[in-house]
Design a protein around this nucleic acid. Structure first.
Lengths: 235, 235
DNA sequence: AAGTGGTCTAGACCACACC
DNA sequence: GTGTGGTCTAGACCACTTC
């Protein structure tokens, strides 16, 4: 037996999802729904409040409750942690460390981190393999102040992504995906023909203190990213 | 002046976000918080209920309220109308219709739509241009029952994406991104060298009644997709 | 048995929108 | 002024977890 609140939520959301109530249309007032469902006002109120939180309704004080405009859709990709991705696919993750050093970065890169041109950045290049097959080159720059142990970490056992998530949860970031061809060196590392087609992801994550890390991920073009489509979250 | 509910929400979420309360830790009971904040139980209750809905808390009847485990991060790509995307970039959208027909689809494709092999599907191939420059080939299959006017639509004036979004009879879907090379025909249409690198997005959207549409979007490799990184939404 | 969250009520006062 | 949603209260009963 559903609670009364759930019955109201179910009844109203059905009217909206079925299209019988269209975006912009007004619902009954709390008093009207109170009478219709035979419950107290607070019960109606909290049911509608929940529908508002879920993005089905917009409520306007002094005016009424209206069906919210349709939300845009987004594609959601959970591809952030290469190790988790490989293991989810039933593979075994291995890593080969190609670079792990403190380096003076090119000025535009250093500027992105809000550091002077003479401040060294941590630079790592790691080849990730699934069951011995190369799947991704990770080329990462990192503000060493935010992960002091970066030079002593064994990157074959831990991913920088995992470390960063545990130590330095970030707030937000942006990402770009494009198609490109591998350089001779990259092709050799990934075991591809020179000039082979690749998928490149560039990502930058920020916390309150500035840019945390910037990474370029290169995958063979034969691999693909898988995401799902859903209505955009509110906020 | 914040409402009491907002003060409670702010106070509790600050304790969680600052890390003073860690995932899994127990919060005070409703009665304790009632005393701490000097409000009635219902006020505490609804504040915590909202925090639970936002994914900060987990509440267990008979046990207590606990800080929810950290949410994983995901990359989020907006689903944009190619036309809106071009215009947002200051370009002028033009379309060239290469195919607009009802066709008998290959059996695996028809099956995906839950239709018999003898049921025709709507098939459209449209080249989208920005200021005369080709930016995308849209190759779409569509259940004609869900968009009856599909054969009479002027696809140079309206995008199928826009039409479908307006009707939005779909609930969810999946999407794949990969790098590939253009076929000779595709390269000619996009104005690229034969075998040029491209970015391919394949998308399938479903409603309660089955697959609504399946589309393959092909862009020159020089273009890129832009997304953002954020904590995964609940649900 | 004691404590927890889940639900519901009846009543009250408020700020705001609309006419 | 009337009606709307926003907020808060005090009290009640319930189902569940924990001991």
């Amino acid at each position: 037996m559903d609670s009364k609140r759930q019955q109201i939520i179910g009844s109203l959301s059905e009217r909206i999802n079925s299209g019988r109530l269209k975006p912009g249309e007004r619902l009954g007032s709390e008093s009207e729904l109170m009478a219709e469902f035979g419950v107290s006002r607070m019960t109606v109120h909290h049911a509608m409040r929940e529908l508002e939180a879920r993005g089905f309704l917009e409520r306007r004080k002094g005016s009424g409750s209206y069906v919210a405009p349709a939300r845009p859709y987004v594609a959601i990709y959970p591809h952030l942690d290469i190790r988790a991705e490989i293991e989810a696919a039933g593979g075994v993750h291995r890593a080969r460390v190609l670079v792990q050093a403190l380096e003076l970065a090119a000025p535009p890169l250093a500027q992105g981190f809000g550091l002077g041109a003479d401040a060294p950045l941590f630079h790592a290049v790691v080849l990730h393999l699934s069951g011995g097959v190369p799947v991704e080159i990770e080329d990462r720059w990192l503000n060493p102040a935010l992960l002091p142990e970066c030079m002593s970490v064994d990157l074959t056992r831990e991913t920088l992504f995992g470390l960063l998530m545990a130590r330095r949860p970030f707030r937000a970031g942006d990402e770009r995906i494009r198609a490109c061809t591998a350089s001779d060196e990259e092709a050799a590392v990934l075991g591809l023909e020179p000039g082979a087609v690749c998928l490149e992801t560039t990502r930058r994550t920020r916390s309150d203190e500035g840019v945390v890390t910037q990474v370029r991920l290169l995958r063979p073009g034969t691999s693909h990213l898988e995401g799902r489509i859903a209505p955009a979250a509110r906020d």
